[in-house]
Amino acid sequence: MNPSGWLWGGALVVVLISVYAWYAGMVRKRNKALQALSGIDIQLRKRFDLIPNVLKIAGRFMEHERDLMKELTELRSRAMEVYDKGDPGSVEKHLAAAAAVQPAMTNIFAAAESYPELRSSDNMLAAQHTYTEVEGHLAAARRTYNATVESLNSSIQIFPGNLIAALAGIKVMPFYEESVGAAKLPVSAGDYLG
């Protein structure tokens, strides 16, 4: 082989190694994002397990808040639907449904403030405390997931990542955004301080 042949061959090897390294990096980042998504699901599971207990405690006192409780039950069922982790659209839908539960849950606790008996109930206080704890863990899981998604999406969207991702079928993943309703809710110091 002549010298220019060696040169082209060498360049091709370098390009192939770089492409593979980029591809391996993307796969690693996708796996990390999926792992972080599982972390969110673990925390969501805790939140969902808590909801029936809260509704059971609140149901005895909050006769006039039936609509609120029904809405929460529906949102919980929707968020608990099985989804495809490999499909970004399905993940986005799942995360949006999960995010919608938080303002409904906060509404229930806010409404409970109007019922003195419920407000002073030990069970309700314990549920509120557990909810705050779960929300703390969920916020941490959300930050972890968003950090991994940011890293994955950057590697996919920056050239030549977009070409490699298209060939390998790796897609950008959605961020887990706080629901608009939750962001607009009035801030209560008690929600943030244990």
């Binding site: 972080a36 703390g136 863990h137 916020a139 941490a140 930050r143």
Partner: peptide
């Protein structure tokens, strides 16, 4: 544990 780290380091 990255989740726990973020839970502690809010």
């Amino acid at each position: 544990d990255p989740i726990e780290a973020r839970y502690l380091l809010t």
